[in-house]
C-alpha cells in the first residue's frame, strides 16, 4: 500500500521555483531518506505535505486520500523539524511536551475509519498501553529518555530534545513520521543514538518514515529507499541502486557543492 504519494508537485515563492514537478511515493513500512543540498526544497516539500505550504501544481495523497480526508489524516502525521523554536525558560517538563502529542479519541476514530477504508491495518503500538501517562512513559522509553521525564526541556541537550519530539510524535501512533534534518545541530554520539531510535521505530513499531539528511553515510546505513532532489527530483529508488551509481553520486556531490558555493557567495 502506498502511504504517501507526491505527484508533479511544484511550489513557488515570489516567482522563484522552490520545488519543480517532483513525484515520488512512499510504501507503507519504508524508511525513505531524502538527500539534497541546502536550499534544495526539502523543507518546503515537507511543509506542503503537512498542509502548511500551498503548492501551485500537482497533488499529494495520504493512503490514497485527497482533500478533506487528507486533512483528517494530517493530524496523524508525526513531524520533527530541524529545530523547534521555543522560549528557553519555557516551564514545561519532558512529560508536558510529550503529552502535547496525544490526540483526541474522536480524531483517532476518524483516522482509523479512513485507514480501514483503504484496506490497511494501522499498527497502533501505544493504543492499549493504558492511560495517557503510561503512554507518555512508554514513548519516552522507546526513545531512551524515560529517566528524564521530569526534567525541564530548557535543560536538555540538542540530541535529547530531538528525541523528546520523536516521543511527542509517537504517542499518537503516527501513520507517517517526517523528520526534517533532525540531527543538524546534534553531536555525533547523539546522532547515532537518534538514528538507532529511528531504525527501531521503523522496524519494531512498523512506522513509515520519511527523513531528510545531508549525511549520506547515515542514509546508506539506515534507509531502505532514497530520493535525491535539488528543486527537481533526480533519483528515487532502492538505496543500493543509488549508492552503486557513481554518476549519480557525483551529480549529487557537485550539486551540493554548487549550492554551498551559491549560499556562501550570497552570505558574503
Amino acid at each position: 500500500m502506498i502511504a504517501l504519494e507526491v505527484k508533479d508537485i511544484s511550489i513557488s515563492y515570489n516567482n522563484h521555483l522552490a520545488v519543480d514537478k517532483i513525484s515520488f511515493d512512499v510504501q507503507e513500512g519504508d524508511l525513505l531518506g531524502i538527500v539534497g543540498p541546502n536550499g534544495a526544497g526539502k523543507t518546503t516539500l515537507f511543509r506542503a505535505i503537512l498542509g502548511l505550504e500551498q503548492y501551485s501544481a500537482g497533488k499529494i495523497k495520504l493512503f490514497g486520500f485527497e482533500g478533506p480526508k487528507y486533512h483528517t489524516l494530517l493530524s496523524l502525521i508525526g513531524y520533527v523539524p530541524q529545530r523547534v523554536e521555543f522560549e528557553p525558560n519555557f516551564p514545561a517538563t519532558v512529560s508536558d511536551i510529550v503529552s502535547m502529542g496525544i490526540i483526541s479519541d474522536k480524531t483517532i476514530a476518524k483516522g482509523a475509519k479512513l485507514i480501514q477504508q483503504c484496506g490497511c491495518c494501522w499498527n497502533r503500538v501505544y493504543k492499549n498501553i493504558g492511560n495517557n501517562s503510561d503512554k507518555i512513559i512508554e514513548a519516552l522509553r522507546t526513545v531512551g529518555l524515560e529517566h528524564l521525564k521530569n526534567r525541564r526541556i530548557g535543560e536538555l541537550s540538542g540530541g535529547e530534545l530531538q528525541r523528546v519530539f520523536i516521543a511527542k510524535s509517537l504517542v499518537k501512533d503516527p501513520i507517517l513520521l517526517i523528520l526534517d534534518e533532525p540531527v543538524t545541530s546534534v553531536d555525533v554520539e547523539s546522532q547515532t543514538k537518534f538514528y538507532n531510535v529511528i531504525k527501531k521505530i521503523n522496524e519494531e513499531n512498523k512506522i513509515t518514515v520519511v527523513w531528510s539528511s545531508h549525511d549520506l553515510e547515515a542514509i546508506s546505513k539506515y534507509a531502505n529507499r532514497v530520493a535525491c532532489m535539488n528543486r527537481k527530483l533526480f533519483f528515487h529508488g532502492a538505496k543500493e541502486k543509488f549508492f552503486s551509481d557513481e554518476d549519480l553520486l557525483k551529480t549529487y556531490t557537485e550539486s551540493a557543492m554548487q549550492m554551498h558555493m551559491h549560499n556562501h557567495n550570497h552570505d558574503v
Binding site: 502548511l52 493530524s75 523547534v84 490526540i103 480524531t107
Partner: peptide, 18 residues
C-alpha cells in the same frame, strides 16, 4: 489548558497537530 500550552509552546507545531 493542553491546547493553549501547545499553542504557547510553538504555534506551528500546534497547527501540525491538528
Amino acid at each position: 489548558q493542553k491546547q493553549f500550552l501547545h499553542l504557547t509552546f510553538n504555534e506551528e507545531q500546534a497547527k501540525i497537530a491538528g
